[in-house]
Design a protein around this nucleic acid. Structure first.
Length: 211
DNA sequence: GACCAGGTCCTTG
DNA sequence: CAAGGACATGGT
């Protein structure tokens, strides 16, 4: 059962790599990625980019400035991402956690990934996806991101495991390499956006797992 | 106008 | 523990 799912996952990883090759996805300096990870919750990326530009214009696109600035200013800058009041609070919570626990983003480098993840999950407004996005794309860690697209994708190829087990399934089939983690997740999103509808998958060319 | 978007939290049954 | 609602703007 789990073995068959594991085969499907490893097959998926290979096929998608062949389809897309190297793609640049979610570039940015750590602070920007951490902020974007919260802004993108239930929101299209294009709107997040606008908000990030607004924040940069006002010198608010850093954990340090989020920590010290007026929450009203943050709300104004991120309004275009929706849920702007909760998100402003979440950004404040994240910044408070980082500044009060470590004293700055750079200081998080010494912390083991597992402990960092636990710490992030403890921040109000940061769940599994946001935590893993911050770890993988912001802090160069091997923590696989399972988002809505990933879940759709794996349903398309007939993997029944629950969302929480999907993460482990991917990590078992990946080398301990941040670049590989980023690429695979990026490939999945690019594929799923196009072919995996919310209800059903339109082009499941990836179903075969017997190899 | 209806429906959806790279979630998370809180409240109910 | 699962299901449902709230949070809100912007695009199709």
């Amino acid at each position: 059962m789990s073995g068959s799912s594991s085969n499907k996952i490893s097959h998926l990883i290979r096929v998608l790599a062949g389809c897309f090759g190297e793609i640049a996805w979610w570039p940015g300096y750590p602070d920007e990625v951490m902020i974007g990870a919260i802004l993108t919750q239930q929101t299209r990326w294009e709107n997040v980019e606008r908000a990030l530009a607004n924040l940069k214009k006002r010198d608010l696109c850093s954990i340090d400035s989020i920590f010290t600035s007026d929450i009203r200013d943050i709300e104004d800058a991120i309004r275009c991402t929706g849920f702007y009041r909760v998100k402003a609070k979440r950004l404040k919570s994240l910044a408070t956690y980082v500044m009060e626990t470590f004293g700055g983003v750079e200081r998080m480098a010494d912390e083991p990934t597992g402990q960092l993840r636990a710490g992030l999950l403890n921040v109000s407004g940061i769940g599994e996806e946001t935590a893993d996005s911050i770890l993988c794309y912001g802090l160069d860690r091997t923590s696989f991101v399972v988002d809505a697209y990933t879940e759709r994708m794996i349903r398309c190829i007939g993997v029944p495991e629950k969302k929480q087990d999907i993460k482990a399934l991917f990590e078992e089939n990946l080398p301990e390499d941040n670049h590989a983690y980023r690429q695979v997740h990026a490939h999945i999103v690019e594929y799923a956006k196009e072919f995996c509808g919310k209800r059903r998958c339109h082009e499941c060319i990836l179903v075969s797992s017997s190899g």
